[in-house]
Amino acid sequence: MNTCIYFVRHAHSVYTPEELERPLSEKGARDAIRVTALLKDKNIDAVCSSPYKRAVETVEGTASIHKLKIDIYEDMKERTLSREPVEDFSQAIGKVWREPHFSFPGGESNLQAQKRGVRCFLNMLDKYAGKSVAVGTHGNIMVLIMNHFDDRYNLDFWKGLEMPDIYKMTFDGKVLVEVERVWE
């Protein structure tokens, strides 16, 4: 039996320097309602999330409608790009994708973040084998995990993501069978 992971990139949030408690914006809250509507008929067996408030808020409606609690996974949090704010975010993201071993001071390289995310994701595939799971997460870590299974998921793919966005990944064991975009 296949395992289906609905990767849910969080909706738009209000910028605050504190990553953990950054809430959804008004638009983000409206879009989270759309996420719930899109996932309500998907027979979701479990809902997981990054510990970041914006990711939790994006999937809490899905958990509520399916009468599930949200399991928090620390390693689904967004990658740390740098300890200090970077001057040019686009340039910095481009650099870490072009140079997978490179990291800014206090940040994670693509390889470090990918290893963390994939380890967590593989544990989810074991724990929820044969089930359908919604996972609230973040764009960069989501694409790094997807890239582990298929290198078509890269910087250009990340640049095309919406906020929120939903991708259904279907697995036979730990083998990726299909990826389908669910967000409309």
Rank of each mutant, 00 (worst) to 15 (best):
R119K: 12
A37C: 10
E87N: 07
D71H: 12
R152Y: 13
Y52W: 02
A32T: 12
S90R: 15
V96W: 02
A37H: 15
S82C: 11
A37Q: 15
S50D: 07
I44H: 09
N140M: 10
Y52Q: 08
F102R: 01
L68K: 15
H148P: 09
H148L: 06
I93T: 07
D71N: 14
G136P: 12
D31C: 03
F104N: 01
A134K: 09
D41C: 02
F89Q: 07
F102E: 05
K67S: 15
E78R: 05
V143F: 06
D126V: 10
L125T: 00
D151G: 01
Y73M: 05
D150E: 08
R30F: 03
S50N: 09
M142S: 11
F121G: 02
K131F: 04
V86E: 02
S82D: 00
G107N: 07
L39I: 14
N43S: 15
F104P: 03
T62E: 04
T62D: 13
R79A: 05
E99P: 02
E108G: 02
K69C: 05
Q91V: 07
G160Y: 10
R83Q: 12
L155D: 06
G139R: 08
R98E: 12
Y52C: 00
L144K: 08
M76N: 01
D45C: 12
T80K: 11
R116M: 03
E78S: 10
S50Q: 03
R30Q: 11
R30G: 09
I145T: 10
R152A: 12
G117L: 06
C48V: 14
C120R: 07
L155G: 00
W158G: 13
E74T: 03
L144E: 09
V59L: 06
V133G: 07
V86D: 04
K159E: 13
A92I: 04
K127D: 09
G130A: 00
A63F: 03
D151W: 03
G136S: 13
R119H: 10
T36D: 06
R30I: 06
I44K: 10
D126R: 14
G139P: 04
Y153D: 11
E162C: 10
V56A: 09
L161W: 14
D88G: 02
T58V: 01
G130V: 04
S82H: 00
W158I: 13
E57I: 03
D75K: 09
